[in-house]
Every structure is written in structure tokens, then in C-alpha cells.
Nucleic acid binder design. Structure first.
Lengths: 209, 209, 209, 209
DNA sequence: CATGAATGAGTATTCATTCAT
DNA sequence: CATGAATGAATACTCATTCAT
């Protein structure tokens, strides 16, 4: 279930709250990427966001809340990338392929965000962590759906077991977490292509007779 | 090149130093797994290791050093698992398969360690981080070697591109980092088998004619 | 001399000011009794009073002012209790007795207020504190007066020294400050009676021949 | 039951702990008397005690702990005064009288401490507060005992009801809490005498036939 | 070599007060 | 006169590291 954790704010103007929170999340993301969540100080975030510390706390209850906002933003961002890529496409096989390509690309392009997610999710409090993982799970299920639809359209995946959607949403993360290594081996676009190919082959994907 | 970072010690007796460091690393690993690196205090580690804080600092310069020792231990551990699995085997194809199975198994069994590695590596200072990544790179190359040997023995891998070794050493990590999800879906052994199968299929592995 | 400290207000309409201040004082009293002066926030008080923080500051200059208003209210309240009790009575001996009984009763019934007064008066700024103590002093003198009048009416108080009025206005406070203990020992009405009896005996009160 | 709350310390040397805590309590008492508990800062206390803030926290867990230590010290101090006064006396009537005189004197002499106790006890956390009140209760009971012994020795107290011990241990507090007023009225020794006399008369104390 | 007490720099969070709208 | 968002100063507490014994 997606149960977006509700963060209470001191400020009443709801529109202002969402606007400022988006602003804060983006500023915080920059700070966290640069220094890491633990080393980053609330003051750093406030300065980067152009707010006083006091004001910051009108929109956020704790440092954890900030990390949560950042996570939300980031996971929403790549999910949006994927949806944008398949928007307009109706052919299930094309949709699956486009989704995969978009996700793989996002993992490389948004490498800073992705690394942050994988490094700092454990720093979230239990509640926030669960909310974030729930969001991730929905994303995984989304890919399960796309695979299923392609199958119904006649495609066959003899290699797709129960973990198919998990694998498909995990392996591309390599482009972010192994960036230090891959960067030395080949160009980014090439790497993306290889990942996509590997996944399709792993799934045993082939257009039915 | 793996150039294991040298940590200076106060104590002269070299044997004592290595012995104590191993002891510290294991104690610290327990503490870090339980509380995370940042929440864990030096005092926690000292207590768990049965040392005074002062003594601890005779074998280690900083908290960072401890994390480095832990990393070293952990990466060495799963590398050892793989070597143990292929020890005695001479047939390249069998060796590759055994290595893969052992690695996949280690990723599931040592999930606490693996999660720690992926969450806390970025907390290491530059020098330590490079040393650890170098060790990882060697491990990746080791799998590249195993693949190469299998190929020379007649096996074909039409799907193995430049990233083959990276993929093979990354996807199994999913068993640790997605544990929260996979646990709900299927049994551990089954998951391991699916990962191995996926990888072999992705590589296009087949015994030559 | 009681020179009620004058609190400057932003607002001109004098009637509105006194009305709102009374309202604020009562709301604040509830909040302070519940959470204590230091733990209570201006926001708490504003919410309880149904005002915005900004408005609050139109009637009050500082948090200290609020505490002062509360003090004024509270000391006035028990003083009023006493006056109400002797209102209509003309016989000096009866008046003294009634005043005493009323005061003792007030100390028990208004225990929350009394405790607050004794705990938080020192938190007032010098000026406010002096104003409050002056008010208290007037109250003490009022009892001195009642004793004097009873004496003139023929009653004798061989035990009444210079501190008589102080004692009479202090001992009953025990019903509030030792409430935690007395509550376990006896019923409230009984305790009141014992205090009154003790005081009369201590004064050596007896109706002259 | 007196259940002195146990405060955990970081430091192991038990002797050092008690010594330092006594030192801290005395320094803190000075600071608290001067500025009040809430306005006083941990830094103030540390400076007054000649310790670093860090060291302070090796002997104490929270600011509350410090207040508790101060309370303990203060209540123990006047209890000791009383015991010292009756030490050596065997005649129950003399003992009661001496205890009373000593207590009354302590309330005047230690006025700063007493005021602090009555103003700041409510700032203690529940656990500490209960421990302190338990200590006070024991003190009250001690006076109940002394009265009882005097009665057994033939003294009569027709005015002593259930609250006798409470009254006797409360009224003298006036010398501290009404100091601002009494000081203007009469000399300290004289005030003490009047309080003692009032109490004895209130109790109806008289040596039996 | 071992010990453990001392240290002080570092930081999230709160809240009275102000002021533009 | 009312509102409520902005502010920044203030503070308890933590912990890696040092060093005298």
C-alpha cells in the first residue's frame, strides 16, 4: 500500500507548504549528494535553501523529515521518467522496452540521487523507511504489470520467474552504484544498451510465433 | 591495483597488532550491523571487543579505520567463500558455475554484511574508500577471469559483453538489498537458483557443440 | 503600596484591552497549571485563548507579562473569596472566623493556582515580582486588620505577635503545597478544620470576659 | 519508603564519583540560587564547578540529575541540622524542643536553599520528584515520632491532630518563603522564637501534671 | 602496553518576538 | 486590529580523541 507519510507543518497555508517543501527537498538533495546525510548539517540545508533555520522548521519536523522528502522526490522522479517514456505508446511490447530503456537511462543520469537512496535509506526512521519502501514496491509491481501485459500481447518470457520484476528494477542500479568502475570501461550509452540487452536475454524475451 | 591501505599502530609487536585488529574488526562488525556505523560509538565497539577505549586506539587511529578494517574483513569473507567453492575443481565450466552459486549464496547468507558495505562505504575517507573499491575491483576481475577460462574451455557466451563480470557480481547483491521484499515472495534457496539461472541465460551461456 | 504595574498595549480601545487580558489570563492559567510556566509556550496560550500569536502580542508585551496577569488574577481570586465570605457580616469575631475559613478553603480548592504562584513567582521580572508581592502584602495586612478589629471587639489573642497575620496567611498554603501528602492522610474538609483550629489555638484566641 | 534514585555514571571509580557529585551539587546550588534552575545553563554549572561540560556529563546524565543531586543535598542538610541538635539529648521533651528550634533556625539560615526547593521541585522529572518527596515524607514522620515520644514521656498535646507533624514542618518554611516581608518586620532570631512559640501553643503543648 | 577520565567542538531543535500584509 | 510566517539566538547533550598514570 502506498501510504505517504504525512508530515505535520507549523504553517497553515497548504500551497505555501508544498511549494517550500519542494524547494527544501531540492536544496537538501544537493547538500546530501555533496556531503552525505550525516555530515550535512541542518544549517547547510537552510543556507542552500535560502531559509533561516527557524523557517526551515516551520515546514519540517526533524532532519529525518528532510531526508524523507528527498527520497520521495527522487523515487518519484525516476518513476515519472518511466511513465513519460511509455506515455502515448500502446503496443505492450514497445511499452515494456521503452520503460526498460527509460529506467536504465534514469539510473545512469540520476546516479547521484540513486546512490544517495541506496546509501541513506537505512538512516530513515522506521515509519519513513516503510513509506519509502512501499513506494519502491509499487514501482517494482509496475514493471511486473508491464511484463504481464507484454505476455498477454503474445510475447514469451520463458526466463521470467517470480523475481523478474525485481531483477529488472535492480540490475540497472549498477550503473549508479558501480559508476566508479564502469566509467573506466565504456561509454554510458553503450553501458545502458548492454544492460537492456542482458535483461531481455535473461528474461528469455522473444516475440511469439 | 590493490594497495591495502596501511594503518599505523602505536604498538610495535606486529603479531599482536594483526591479531587484535582481526578481533576488533569482528566485534565492530557485530556492532555496526546492529546499530549502523554512525549510531555506533567507539565505546560500543570497545565494550564488544572487550577492550578499553584507550587500548582500542593503540591499534587503530580513527573510527574510520575501524570501518575500513570491517570492510576488508567482509569483502575478504565472501571472496574466500568463492575461492573455497572452486578449490579442487579443475573443469572451467564447473568452476564458473560453482563460483556463481557460492557468490549468490554468500550474498543471501551474509546479507547483513553486504547491506553494511553498500550503505557505509561512502562514509569512508577517500583513501580507505579507494582501497576498498580496489579490492572489489579485483573480485570483479576474478569473475572475468573465470568466464574467460570457461570460454577457452569451449563454452560460449554470446551475451557476455564488457560488463559481464560486473553484472555477475552485482545482480546477486539484490538478495541482500531487496531482502525486505524478496523475503515475502519466495524461499531463499529458490531465489538463489533463480538468480543463477537468470545470469546464465543473460550471458547466453551454452556448452559449445 | 500596591501600584499595579502598568502594561503598555498596542491597542487603543481600553475596554477591549481589559476584556481580552482577562480572557488571556484565564486561558494562560489553564495552560500553566497543566504544563507549568516554562514548558508552556506562547503558542499554547494563544491557541487556548483562541487568538493568533500576533494578536496576543497586541495585548501583552512579553511572556512575563502573561505570567503577571495570571498572578494578578489568582491572588485577586482568593482575596475575593475572603471578602465574599465576610461580606454582610458585621460582628468582628465572626468576620475573622469566616475570613479564616474562607481562606483555608480557597487554599485547598485553588491548589493548582496556589502551587503555581509559589513555584513561578520567582520567574517574574523584578518589576512584576514586586507588584505581585505588594498585592500579597496588602492581603496579609488585611488579615492583620481583621485581627485588630476582633481585638477591639473584646477578643484576646495573647499569642498574636508581629507575625500573626503572616502565619495566618501562610500556614493554610500547606493544603496546596503538601497536597501530595495530606491527600493520603485525611479528607479535605477535615484538614481545613484542623488548620483553622490550629491557627486559633496558636493565636490564643478566646472571647474576652 | 526512601528509595534514593540511582544515577548511572560513566566513570567507574565509585569514590571519585561521589566526591565529584558532591562538588557538582554544591556548585550547582550556588548557580541555581543565583539564576534559578531554568535560567541556569549547564555551562554555568560546569564553569562554577571547575569542570568541562564533557566531564560534567561523566558524572551526571541530564540537567535533571543535577537538580536532583542539589535537592538531595539540601534536604539532607537541614535534616542533619535537626539530628545534630538532638544528638546527646535524651529527655523527650527537650528533644522535641531542640528539634523544633533547630528546624526553624535552618529554615531561616538556609533560606536560599529552601526557596529553591519550593520553587524548583516541580521541575524535576517524575522519578526524581518522587524520590525527593519520599525523603521529605520521612522527615515529616521523624517529627511525628518526636512528638509521640514526648507524649509518652508525659507531655500532652491536646491540639495535635493528624496534621501535627505536617504543620510543624511546614510553618517554619515561612521564614524562607516570606523572607521578603518578615525581614522588614523584625529580627531573625525574634521571628524564630515567635514561630516556635506559635507552634507549641498550637499543639496545646503542656507538661503533664 | 593498558587504562579510563578529561575534553570541547559540534548540532538538532525550540520558541519568544517581530513585522509585512 | 488581526494574522501567521519569519527569525535567530540560545542550549542540552554526544562522542571521537587524547594523555596522564
Amino acid at each position: 500500500m502506498a501510504q505517504p507519510r504525512i508530515i505535520a507543518a507549523q504553517v497553515k497555508d497548504a500551497e505555501l507548504v508544498t511549494e517550500r517543501r519542494a524547494h527544501i527537498a531540492q536544496a537538501a538533495a544537493r547538500v546530501f549528494r555533496a556531503k552525505g546525510f550525516h555530515s550535512a548539517t541542518i544549517r547547510d540545508v537552510a543556507v542552500e535553501a535560502g531559509l533561516s533555520q527557524g523557517s526551515l522548521y516551520n515546514y519540517v519536523r526533524t532532519k529525518d523529515d528532510i531526508l524523507y522528502l528527498v527520497h520521495q522526490d527522487m523515487t518519484a522522479a525516476y518513476a515519472r521518467d518511466v511513465e513519460a517514456a511509455i506515455d502515448g505508446l500502446t503496443e505492450p511490447r514497445a511499452r515494456l522496452h521503452a520503460a526498460l530503456a527509460a529506467f536504465v537511462h534514469a539510473m545512469r543520469e540520476r546516479h547521484g540521487d540513486i546512490a544517495l537512496i541506496y546509501q541513506e535509506t537505512h538512516a530513515l526512521g522506521a515509519e519513513s523507511r516503510h513509506a519509502v519502501l512501499a513506494q519502491t514496491q509499487i514501482f517494482i509491481e509496475r514493471f511486473g504489470q508491464l511484463i504481464e501485459e507484454a505476455r498477454e500481447a503474445g510475447m514469451t518470457f520463458p526466463g521470467a520467474g517470480k523475481l523478474a520484476a525485481d531483477i529488472v528494477t535492480f540490475l540497472p542500479v549498477m550503473l549508479s552504484l558501480r559508476r566508479w568502475h564502469i566509467r573506466d570501461v565504456m561509454a554510458g550509452a553503450e553501458a545502458e544498451a548492454e544492460i537492456v540487452a542482458f535483461l531481455m536475454r535473461g528474461l528469455g524475451a522473444s516475440d511469439g510465433p
